[in-house]
Simulated assay, not measured.
Amino acid sequence: MISFLGTGVALVTPFKSDQSVDHKALAKIVNFNIENGTDYLVISGTTGESVTITKKEKKEIIDTIHKANGSRVPMVLGIGGNNTQEVIEEIQTTDLSYIDAILSVSPYYSKPTQEGIYQHFKAVAEISPLPVILYNVPGRTSSNMLPATTLRLANDFENIIAVKEAGNSVAQYLQLLKNKPEDFLIISGDDDLALSVVLAGGAGVISVIGQAFPKQFSKMIKLGLEGKAKEAYDIHFNLMDATSAIFEENNPAGIKGVLEALKLCKDTVRLPLVPASDVLKAKIKKIVKEMK
């Protein structure tokens, strides 16, 4: 079975000034990450601006990432939404030849009950030909998938292998870690809590800031998995300012500001998002300069 231990990164979708996808920059970011220790790649999540990407563009993005990656690291594809039937149809009609797992967000906007969330993922699990990673991000969905629901799904479906938990709740992480099935993975979706989660028994992280500083971030997580807390926290403290800065305004404007400062891509985003403010850009440039 494919391993999703360690550091995964939620890849941005770079755009040129004319708003078209910058495939050259995307390939550069992929290579930069793999060469510096990233363990797997996550495509078309929130950070990839999935809601403003067309189906055609999504296919082209997958192709570019696959070509840049080869078969060096696993690839996870985001397929989720609040229309269960549409999610099922996308899974059934997408070429998943190069994909190792699906990351599926808990339904947003509709604010389903816990039973509704369970039934949604039950329907997804029953048709998915690939392992499924649940994604709980209540700050964006306006609905928290409670640990009892996550664990019910983990126990009921063998192909639901993990949850990317991004509720920024230590108590919720600990409930999941305490009560999870032995082989079910708790993956942090909160960059600021990732090391603490790993030290408590988590499997790793799907990170935003990690794609800008993959060498440092992946080493931190590796040390955490080895139980080397002091060495890992030294890196965590060094990354704290950057991690905090990228979420000050919106994601992915912040991380794209960092990637622009690193000369990996432009900071262009698609409306309704706007680039980081001049104040935040100045702060990011200072942080990046000090980290080099």
Results as ranks from 00 to 15, higher is better:
Phe4Asp: 04
Leu11Ser: 11
Val12Arg: 13
Pro14Lys: 14
Phe15Gln: 05
Asp22Val: 12
Asp22Asn: 12
Lys24Tyr: 09
Ala27Met: 07
Val30Gln: 06
Gly37Gln: 00
Val42Ser: 12
Glu49Ile: 13
Asp63Asn: 09
Gly70His: 12
Val73Thr: 09
Gly78Met: 06
Gly81Leu: 01
Asn82Ile: 01
Ile88Arg: 15
Asp95Glu: 13
Ser97Val: 03
Tyr98Val: 08
Lys122Val: 00
Val124Ser: 06
Ala125Glu: 01
Ile127Pro: 02
Ser128Arg: 07
Pro129Leu: 02
Val137Gln: 00
Ser142Met: 15
Arg152Glu: 08
Asn155Gln: 14
Asn159Gln: 10
Ile160Ala: 12
Ile161Met: 01
Ala162Gln: 03
Asn168Ser: 10
Ser169Ala: 13
Tyr173Glu: 03
Leu176Ile: 03
Asn179Ala: 11
Lys180Asn: 00
Glu182Trp: 03
Asp183Asn: 14
Asp183Cys: 05
Asp192Gln: 13
Asp192Tyr: 15
Ala194Gln: 00
Val197Phe: 01
Val198Leu: 00
Ala203Met: 10
Ala203His: 09
Val205Arg: 00
Ser207Gly: 05
Ser207Val: 09
Val208Tyr: 04
Gly210Trp: 02
Phe213Gly: 04
Leu225Cys: 05
Phe237Val: 09
Asn238Cys: 14
Asn238Arg: 15
Leu239Phe: 07
Ala242Glu: 01
Ala245Phe: 14
Glu248Ser: 10
Ala253Tyr: 14
Gly254Val: 04
Val258Ala: 07
Glu260Asp: 08
Glu260Tyr: 02
Leu264Asn: 02
Cys265Val: 00
Lys266Phe: 09
Val269Gln: 09
Arg270Asp: 04
Val279Ala: 14
Leu280Trp: 10
Leu280Tyr: 15
Ile284Val: 10
Ile287Ala: 12
Met291Asp: 04
